[in-house]
Design a protein around this nucleic acid. Structure first.
Lengths: 310, 310
DNA sequence: GACTGCGATAGTCTGAGGTTATGACGAACT
DNA sequence: AGTTCGTCATAACCTCAGACTATCGCAGTC
């Protein structure tokens, strides 16, 4: 029953304004008979006369006027919808849900958030801090649009772009600062983040884990905690370089670059392969690279391979 | 640019709800390819992806969700428009502008207005009291929908239906009540309404106007005034029967039926011949007849000829 | 690696909605 | 009164949007 078309309503509005079939048809850029037919059709569908056809005048009926005022509202709303789409066409806009792992978030976000807002003024940014596994799960469920994690991510339905690489640095009690920096295979009493953090797995993987390597009785829930524990002389730990300024400022520790083969990590952005906003996501990635370059110590910006711009 | 169709939006809404092309197509009672094509078309027109097509899931994009919430509002409004038309289909509704001549209005309207409201609960009644010429002019300009006047009305672009007929009665000072009622051709010192009232013309026409017939130095602006003047002994006048109870109650006058050929008038309703609401107008006329029968002394209800129901 | 479920694409057909030409009719003019 | 004019409705025709069926392609699943 409600099967009139927007086109009919636009014709109707034109006729209501012009009060003349010929002129209204011209306004609509169609022929007069076409307009007559559509108005007639509309009148049949509403079941009431909308216009009174006089010899020299076309007038709205009482019902027609009530109808017209509602039609106008409807059409303006339809116009708004079109304008809304047009306005959103160029720039990334709307909700954008970004997940970030805990060993990146505190160091990158203070620089990133303002830059994202500046770059995409119409964005509604929602941030979520969680470990990689959780972020991947939420991505797959469609509850996140993208995530910043350490690469690689083994998940075929996700796609990724590298953002930047950084080294890990060794954190020891300040007292040990004078000692030579041990090789990564010689580390002892390593303090680690609790289960689930990718940084823990990375730390475990880049050395051959001799007996006594890790203090696995003393997992820390954050890098901040770990550094405090190092300062208390409980052991040593590694920090990604971006974390160094913030975490070691107030602690009684010393930081040293590794010698020889320097361990590190690559941070990248991942999202569902099926997400149609690839273009916009790559723009976001570019902003993240910029933010990392300007606000994160020692971040070496990486660029996506050419094929990924598709 | 804003040339999407309501149909597309309905398809879109269904898909947004079902998150499945096949099921959404079924809901829309079309084939799945038809829906795919229309969604694609809509996405092309908005210039943005609305859905993310996953392997096992169809999801709205961020933009799609914003779009959807607006679409829902628009569609509900379109539905309302249809419902509004459907609701107005049966009963007369909306603004109804009725003109009434001054020698009818005060006596008929108190009974008519409640009956009209009761009969057409959704009506928005606007009343206008003016002399016939003015009412006809406003009708022709489309500023009135109908008018209650004395018939006949000489105006080819108006059509009419008779409502009721009534007699005129003679009003004399009470002192003269004992005298025999003069014949209409023997009247003297007749007090008349001022220029423009049809009742004046009628009074002038139903007698042969001998010298001294009318006190044309003393026109009254209302029947009420005339009756007061009669009571003061300035002359005599005629009243339509419906005016008698109200106008003669407080005055020192006497009313008498004419003998022989009794003058009177016919009240009818007129409207633009082009007005498409003939059916509803005839309903209104019927209510007026009923109101006249129950509330107006001596009104003899008349019925429209069968052909007029078209 | 074949199967399956699901969306996209291709090819075809129908009718909604456009066109031009013409009719009908009231208003205005001669 | 007849004629002309302005205006909307109707008729006949045409075209393409949008429907259908059939089929392909792809990603999970067994």
């Amino acid at each position: 029953m409600t099967n009139f078309t927007l086109k009919q309503l636009r014709y109707f509005e034109a006729l209501a304004e012009q009060q003349h079939f010929g002129r209204a048809a011209e306004v609509c850029a169609i022929s007069q008979p076409a307009l007559s037919v559509q108005i007639k059709e509309l009148e049949q569908q509403t079941g009431k006369a909308l216009f009174e056809r006089g010899a020299r005048q076309v007038r709205l009926t009482a019902f027609g006027e009530d109808f017209a005022s509602r039609v106008r509202i409807l059409l303006r709303q339809a116009d708004d919808l079109g304008a809304f789409a047009a306005a959103s066409r160029e720039r990334l806009a709307g909700r954008f849900r970004l997940g970030v792992i805990p060993t990146v978030a505190p160091y990158l976000l203070p620089g990133l958030v303002p830059q994202l807002s500046a770059h995409f003024p119409d964005i509604e940014l929602r941030l979520r801090e969680s470990q990689t596994a959780r972020l991947v799960e939420e991505l797959l469920q469609g509850r996140l649009d993208a995530a910043l994690v350490a690469l690689p991510v083994e998940e075929t339905s996700l796609t990724e772009t590298p953002l930047f690489a950084e080294d890990f640095v060794l954190v020891r009690p300040r007292a040990e600062g004078a000692h030579p920096v041990p090789h990564i295979t010689e580390l002892r009493n390593m303090l680690l983040l609790e289960e689930g953090h990718c940084l823990r797995d990375q730390a475990l993987s880049f050395c051959n884990r001799p007996a006594g390597f890790a203090r696995d009785d003393l997992d820390g829930s954050s890098l901040s905690t770990l550094v405090q524990m190092v300062g208390a002389g409980l052991g040593v730990t590694v920090l990604p370089e971006m974390a160094v300024p913030l975490e070691t400022r107030m602690a009684d520790v010393t930081c040293s670059a590794f010698r020889g083969s320097v361990p590190g990590r690559t941070i990248g952005m991942v999202w569902r392969r099926t997400n149609p906003m690839t273009q916009e996501l790559l723009q976001v990635a570019q902003v993240v690279r910029e933010a990392a370059r300007t606000t994160c110590n020692g971040a070496r910006v990486l660029h996506s391979r050419s094929g990924e711009t598709l």
